[in-house]
Design a binder for these strands. Structure first.
Lengths: 117, 117
DNA sequence: CCGATTGGTAACTTCCTGGTTACCCATGAA
DNA sequence: TTCATGGGTAACCAGGAAGTTACCAATCGG
């Protein structure tokens, strides 16, 4: 997962409507574009563009049969992202911090002590 | 974590430079804005805007001491997001699918059988 | 073949994002 | 007090994202 794919993935997910599309496709795999669009206020073309964007981010896979394009949610990128973050932020995840304020002030104090030392 | 916060969080993360800022703050907690900006080509004000955006998404916490503003990475939103996804996509995560193509075609076949039934 | 259905492209508008420069405020040190 | 330093606001610009309407292409059923 390079930075370009990561950008595309996160940008794709940073949109309420698109996340809802994924949920719909999770619930009903193989929907057509038109069927999907029926759940939104937006025009069909608007939905189509979002679908294309999701497919570019590999969050959606589509297969045509005849004149209909069947859409499927693909969870793999999210799995990859989750795994990556779990390792990348492991030091912090281990802490399982709740009281942010206390920790931040603790670090500020440390820095202050370090400076004056 | 409501949809607004989720939008802000994902949008904040969907930018290479901002992710790098988080990494820098992870490595050196308490950096000033100026120190952070020194790692980028961009103007100081450009960096400042990104910092403000990160703080709005609660990925960064800042405390002023004197005239300097000290910045700290806050992992909590990422933890929350990870936990949420783990449950939300649990059905798919359990599968641990590798061969997407096979699965997709399997579903397509099911749909076809269902249709012709 | 003919018409309805599904999908897609093209062109356009609107608004937001990412970045800039210019300028101002507050603070710490000599 | 003076002035260099760190921080911040305002105004602006270019480009991309999100959405629209109008139109075209392919396919399936009668």
């Amino acid at each position: 997962m390079n930075d370009d794919r990561l950008d595309a993935l996160l940008a794709a997910l940073a949109h309420r409507g698109r996340r809802r599309m994924l949920d719909l496709l999770m619930a009903a795999p193989g929907m057509s574009v038109k069927a999907l669009a029926s759940h939104f206020e937006m025009s069909r073309i608007g939905v189509l563009k979002h679908v294309d964007l999701l497919e570019a981010a590999e969050l959606v896979v589509s297969r045509r049969r005849g004149r209909t394009r069947h859409l499927y949610f693909n969870p793999v990128p999210i799995q990859l992202l989750r795994d990556r973050w779990t390792t990348h932020y492991s030091a912090f995840f281990a802490e399982r911090v709740v009281d942010v304020k206390a920790r931040v002030e603790g670090r500020a104090r440390e820095a202050e002590e370090h400076k004056s030392a």
